[in-house]
Amino acid sequence: MTRTAIFYVTLVLSTVFFGALAATVSLVGGGRAWMDRANRGWARSVLFAAGVRVTVHGLEHLHSSGVQIIAANHQSYFDIWALIAGLPASVRFIAKRELGNIPMLSVGMRSAGHVLIDRDRPRSARKTLREAGGRMRAERLTLVLFPEGTRSRDGRLGRFRRGAFALALETRAPLVPAAVHGGQRVYPPGAKRVTPGSITIRLGPAIRLDGAEPADRKTLLRETRVAIETMLPDGGMDGAAPG
């Protein structure tokens, strides 16, 4: 059986198993720790099957309370599994609702408590973000968002959406920039085959939002983008640069 076949079989089986586990935990009130185990088990099994190693630098920049927002660039679906497996925190994602159209990914994310927002319905999206902010504080979660809004087609850092920073400004939680590199080689957008390799995550110092106002959204976007650019090979301009 080829590596790609092993990956897809494992993806299906692990999503069903850990998705069922997460759903059961949610129903019986098993708590955050059990949900984290389901999340990490799902991510690690998929990464192992694909032959992907994850290396993380800058863990000292994570807040000790676990309550924070991580803004990361987005090259591949593997970014999601790499961040879940690599970060020692209760990681939940804020992602576009279109992921709900991908059966295996959607089942795993919904069951594990990740947040899917409808960007075409601003009022609904704002309500979902407010609820996510409340969960973050109550459950001591680390919420991850992708300011580009979608995966890069060529590995280069795309345009950031200002709306992605609404949650950070509303909650005033520490905003940690993250540069994720390597997924473009493992499983680029549109790919059918998986190529074993490595994914590197680099975390930068948290951007404090004390005193920030909604009008500062553009400044926050620029500061976050610069922080991520400096941590990516060639400033995120060359998708083929080594990790």
Rank of each mutant, 00 (worst) to 15 (best):
124 S>P: 03
161 R>K: 15
212 A>N: 02
227 A>D: 11
140 R>T: 11
178 A>L: 01
182 G>D: 10
223 E>Q: 13
102 I>E: 10
177 P>N: 07
162 R>T: 03
162 R>L: 11
157 L>K: 09
198 S>F: 03
136 M>S: 14
145 L>D: 02
120 D>S: 14
133 G>W: 08
126 R>A: 14
208 R>H: 12
145 L>Q: 08
226 V>Q: 11
101 N>A: 14
200 T>M: 05
193 R>F: 01
180 V>P: 02
193 R>N: 02
171 T>V: 14
221 L>G: 01
172 R>W: 06
189 P>W: 08
183 G>V: 02
198 S>K: 15
163 G>W: 05
192 K>M: 05
178 A>F: 09
216 D>Y: 07
119 R>D: 10
146 F>R: 08
189 P>K: 08
105 L>Q: 15
208 R>V: 02
151 R>I: 06
205 P>A: 10
117 I>F: 08
205 P>G: 07
156 R>S: 15
218 K>G: 03
125 A>W: 07
189 P>S: 09
215 A>C: 01
221 L>C: 03
168 A>F: 03
174 P>K: 13
176 V>G: 13
201 I>S: 10
215 A>N: 03
207 I>Y: 01
111 S>K: 04
173 A>K: 11
201 I>N: 09
153 R>I: 06
120 D>V: 00
167 L>P: 14
195 T>Y: 05
138 A>I: 03
149 G>R: 13
135 R>M: 15
190 G>E: 09
106 S>N: 15
